[in-house]
Structure formats: structure tokens, C-alpha cells
């Protein structure tokens, strides 16, 4: 847990630092010219659906769900409007919370100096860690898995150097839980693969 907090603090630190103090020339220039940040929050929307069990007419309805997500992308502009960086966030699902740590790219359109509504696309791909979930018994395991999130959205100028963002995208989180019980000779293993596929709608800021 300590690692996570340190990581998050470091990221938040890089976000707020420029506003506090006058910077040394080269770093200031770097931040101005190269550094790109997208920080946003939103909802992960899942559709309701029906599960039919094998060889029976019996099924049950799984209601649609909305879950909360936050994330921050920190990167550097490597080519014109293309920025490459790392994305860290938290996705709150009802029984599990996932911390996806991803590599991401963001591509914005148009000249960044012109103050008008612009567009951007991006994609994050990485691994979802399950660090936030309580340590379960020795017979239970939880493994993180692939996280992927492409998105497209609008950049709306705030008036300063920053933009508000509004994006829509897709978010996949995968993970796996395993419970194994052995009572004397008896064995019971329950393994579940979770594939959470959601529509992600996010609001945030970019600078």
C-alpha cells in the first residue's frame, strides 16, 4: 500500500508543482513545452444482460451497473501532438477495486496555442493490480489482469493554459479469483475469470 501512496503522491506532486513555485528555466520550459497531463473521473457503464444456464431454460438477469473511475495520465510530447506517458487510476467495482497502471498515448488535434474546442484520442493499456482488496485467507487468491481503455473526446479551453476534457471510451478490466478448499481428501476449487467490459464516460482537465 505504501508504494501506491508514494506513487500517487509523486504523480499529484508533478501535477501541482508548477503552480506553486517559480521554476528553473530548463524544467519550466520542459513542463511548458513537453509535459502533458490528463486527469479525469467518470463512470463505467455496464449493460444489463441475461445468463442462461447450460441445458435449461432457467436463467437470471444481471442488472446494468455504473461504477466510478478516476485516472491521471502523465506524459511527454514526443512528436507534434503525440504524447506518451503512464496512466494510473482506480476503478471501484462493487466487490473489487482495481488499480490499473498503464502505458498510454494521447493525440490531440490542431495547434495547441489556438484557444478553441479541439479533439483528442488516446489509449491506455496495462495491468490492473488488486492491491486495494483485503488480504483473504490462505486458500483464496486474487490475480489482476489486463486493463485496456481506448477513448476519444473533446478538449474545451478553460481560458488559461488548461482544457476541460469530455471523453467517451471503452474500458476492459480482467482479473481472476481462486478459492481452493481441501477438507481431508476432499477438494473444492472455485476459479472465476472476471472480464468487465464497460463504456467509460469521463470529465477532467488537461494541461
Amino acid at each position: 500500500m505504501k508504494i501506491i501512496f508514494t506513487l500517487i503522491l509523486a504523480l499529484v506532486g508533478t501535477m501541482v508543482y508548477p503552480q506553486d513555485k517559480p521554476l528553473q528555466g530548463s524544467f519550466k520550459n520542459f513542463v511548458k513545452g513537453k509535459y502533458v497531463n490528463f486527469t479525469d473521473f467518470g463512470g463505467l457503464f455496464g449493460k444489463s444482460y441475461q445468463i442462461y444456464y447450460n441445458n435449461s431454460n432457467y436463467g437470471n438477469i444481471v442488472p446494468g451497473r455504473v461504477n466510478f473511475t478516476i485516472q491521471t495520465f502523465n506524459g511527454i510530447r514526443v512528436y507534434k501532438n503525440l504524447a506518451v506517458g503512464a496512466t494510473v487510476g482506480v476503478d471501484w467495482f462493487s466487490n473489487y477495486q482495481i488499480i490499473p497502471i498503464s502505458l498510454g498515448i494521447r493525440v490531440t488535434s490542431g495547434d495547441s496555442k489556438i484557444k478553441k474546442v479541439k479533439t483528442f484520442v488516446g489509449v491506455d493499456a496495462g495491468y490492473g493490480f488488486m492491491w486495494l482488496n483485503d488480504k483473504m485467507g490462505d486458500n483464496q487468491k486474487i490475480n489482476g489482469g489486463l486493463g485496456i481503455s481506448p477513448m476519444a473526446g473533446l478538449l474545451i479551453p478553460t481560458g488559461g493554459n488548461a482544457n476541460f476534457t469530455l471523453s467517451i471510451g471503452y474500458k476492459h478490466n480482467g482479473f481472476n479469483t481462486k478459492i481452493s478448499n481441501r477438507i481431508n481428501e476432499s477438494l473444492y476449487i472455485n476459479e472465476t475469470d472476471y472480464n468487465l467490459n464497460r463504456m467509460a464516460i469521463r470529465l477532467g482537465i488537461n494541461f
Binding site: 471503452y170 472465476t192 472480464n195
Partner: peptide
């Protein structure tokens, strides 16, 4: 328009969870 199209596409995203139980 693109965003509207994406929203239409992604609104049908559904979770998929598969449980494998092994027992004696």
C-alpha cells in the same frame, strides 16, 4: 458524430464472468 457512434457501440458493453468449479 464519432463520439455518438462510439457511445452507441459501447453502450452494449457487458461484463462476462466465467466460473470454473472443480470438486471431488
Amino acid at each position: 458524430l464519432l463520439m455518438a457512434a462510439l457511445a452507441t457501440a459501447f453502450v452494449s458493453c457487458k461484463d462476462n464472468c466465467v466460473q470454473t468449479v472443480t470438486y471431488r
